[in-house]
Amino acid sequence: MLKTSDPTELAAISKKMRRQVIEMITEAKSGHPGGSLSAVELLVTLYFDVMRHDPANPKWKDRDRFILSKGHACPILYSVMAECGYCPADQLNTLRKLGSIYQGHPDVRFMPVLEASTGSLGQGVSLAIGMALAAKLDKSPSRTYVVLGDGELQEGQIWEAAMFAGFRKVDNVVAIADNNGIQLDGFTKDIMDLEPLADKWRAFGWHVIEVNGHDIPALQKAFAEASSTSGKPTALIAHTVKGKGVSFMENNPKYHGQAPTLDEEKRALAELV
């Protein structure tokens, strides 16, 4: 697979991923475009530059692991993994259809190359801690990355896990909050405000990095800082735009969980050239 640190190449891949996300969800007639589009640069930077992994040897013991705790954003995960060669790109448009490996939320039964089945929010940090503890026991350099929604941070289990990892110094975990400010019912600040979010993670013993989640060089720098941080897990608060890259979807709660119409698909793809 292609590995690159060139931000221009990573940006080009990101644009391709956005197009695929729009096409997949339109074809499926249901799904979550907003939170998939906000996480594009996060996943692209991780899979194509930062993470140590090998699609030809997906169960390599010392691989870095990735968990999409906000499982509803799986179209971007499937697109990125297909681009890496983990799974067939020509089946991406079977998303959510009977018999497809591309289930509505990530499901290891259908896609053994996934690290975890997710979809019920709040559980990814705990899973990541378990994988990270196993790596420490095995004296493996493996690191575990987990992408969380900001609305998801309202789940109590997140903070049980945050307390554990901070106290136990599980420094081979990186939790990335896709902080797009919107959840299903509206703006996060109106539903259940998470601020001051950085202070919360710091109070639980985490090293916190705030970053523009669409700025690839800034993300590369942030992940490098996370890797060189020992004695503390890292929380990367990625400030993102829900629906990023499609003007009429940006910052619009409507597109949290609504598929584009055929006309909207056409308009979206016209913007992603």
Partner: peptide, 16 residues
């Protein structure tokens, strides 16, 4: 924190 414990256990199991 039993909920966290259950999922950490699952993570450990997933990693062998």
């Amino acid at each position: 924190a039993e909920a966290n414990m259950a999922a950490i256990a699952a993570g450990l199991a997933s990693a062998g």
